[in-house]
Write a protein that binds this DNA or RNA. Sequence first.
DNA 1: ACTTATCTTATAGTTTTAGTAGTGAATGGT
DNA 2: ACCATTCACTACTAAAACTATAAGATAAGT
Lengths: 146, 146
Amino acid sequence: MKISTRTRYGVRLMFELALFNGVKGISLKDIASNEGISEKYLSQIIIPLKARGLVISFRGPCGGYALARDPSEISLREIVEILEGGLSILDCLNNSSLCKRSTKCPTRGVWELLNSKIIQTLEAVTLRDLVEESLNKPRDSFTYSI
Amino acid sequence: MKISTRTRYGVRLMFELALFNGVKGISLKDIASNEGISEKYLSQIIIPLKARGLVISFRGPCGGYALARDPSEISLREIVEILEGGLSILDCLNNSSLCKRSTKCPTRGVWELLNSKIIQTLEAVTLRDLVEESLNKPRDSFTYSI
DNA sequence: ACTTATCTTATAGTTTTAGTAGTGAATGGT
DNA sequence: ACCATTCACTACTAAAACTATAAGATAAGT
């Protein structure tokens, strides 16, 4: 029941892109610097986010990444789902053939309920919400070579 | 964001004890047989549940385990919390000293919200609820040497 | 050309998970 | 007293997941 570092970093990465939405390309180098995360690690994390169409990239000097959609159109559910490799807290919830007990399993109900609450909660929050919330909080100096 | 096998098994174990609430001792052997789980593994899982006072034990022949409280007084939150080693989806939520960014972290809010929803959902379900729900479902033949 | 930055593939160390094995200690029935 | 049963405790291990790091290739702007 832990959120992986990978997912946490990925959300912070997406937050940075949302913060500078409209700018053509924000480099991982800058994001890594601002967020204090290894650039190499971020480059791994962003791969599935790009593959699933949340992010677009530009190569070369002044290149970098940008959100593929408006921040208000990207929910935390999408991001976490991609980075966690699905949002099912149990494999048997998606694929009932994995467990022959599924039809009579007395505990299945709770897990289904919990799973739907998690999805529902994450679905309700978008990158835009994170950006708006961040306006009320202090932020360290940051460097973006825009 | 996965529920561990350990926790799933633990909940099924507690469900079995709830099902036979009132009986002095249900042996792990029987539970293991009914649920199709390794008895040795169950004996590991039940240790923290006993240590935290959810379960009491009786040794010797006709010994076994029983719930320490009424099933309606034992929530899934308690069980999952014990078996997962806490219910915090991020260590920094409980212990903000772990992260110097905590006061200005723009993503902290979502994780706090998600965490509270999870706790709230699990808190609302008790072992009694599981037993009641199970009455509507078919159950395989089972062997309890009561 | 040269620099910047993404893209791709491989790898490696650490931690967690999911068990198994063996021994010891208490208890109740005969 | 003996014996089978059941919990109690300690140690170990194989496999998987997690958290990165490294090196070279590719593309684009100046």
